[in-house]
């Protein structure tokens, strides 16, 4: 990005600007059934309109920034830009989705976290899934015991947790 010439087209800013306008539209659509006024002052419908108004202005400004750089913006845009390892990003997002799916299916905390751990380690370039599964499992197990026993918080339970529970009780 550092070398981006003035006036060169920036796709990302265009997409972000459109997303902001879409968000504003969503807020306005939701707010249309809210009362704007009460006896004195304003009702719950006003703040959404203010926020949506701000988003529309900023969305348009962002779309404009996709085409022109504002005079007050420094040339150097810092860390942004550079080649992106999209495969790695997708692997982590899919691991998170797998964790959510596993929890919805009632597979429990430990199993879900093991999958997330192994998937993330894979994304970061490790290629020994069995070892990572073992480490993830051990870590999730320790966290589960600390959180549910020591801190008495509730975490999603599945077959492994129930087995563990019986093991500790018996």
């Amino acid at each position: 990005m550092q070398t981006r010439a003035r006036g060169r087209f920036d796709v990302a800013e265009l997409v972000i600007g459109i997303a902001l306008l879409a968000l504003a539209a969503l807020i306005l659509f939701d707010a249309r059934r809210l009362p704007a006024g009460v006896v004195y002052g304003i009702g719950p419908g006003v703040a959404p309109v203010i926020v949506a108004g701000g988003l529309i202005v900023l969305g348009l400004a962002t779309i404009a920034a996709a085409f022109w750089r504002a005079p007050w913006v420094e040339e150097d845009e810092g860390e942004a830009g550079g080649a992106v390892d999209w495969t790695a990003v997708v692997v982590i997002v899919v691991s998170l989705a797998a964790l959510i799916a596993l929890m919805m299916l009632g597979a429990g905390f430990i199993l879900g976290c093991t999958v997330l751990f192994a998937g993330t380690a894979w994304a970061f370039g490790r290629r020994s899934p069995l070892a990572d599964i073992a480490i993830g499992f051990a870590l999730a197990l320790v966290i589960h015991v600390v959180f549910t026993r020591l801190l008495t918080l509730t975490l999603p339970e599945g077959p492994i947790e129930r087995l563990l529970l019986r093991g500790l009780a018996g």
């Binding site: 993330t120 380690a121 970061f124 370039g125 990572d132 999730a140």
Partner: peptide, 10 residues
């Protein structure tokens, strides 16, 4: 790093 960030996510 792989274990660190995997742990952070957990």
């Amino acid at each position: 790093r792989p274990w660190l960030y995997a742990g952070i996510l957990i």
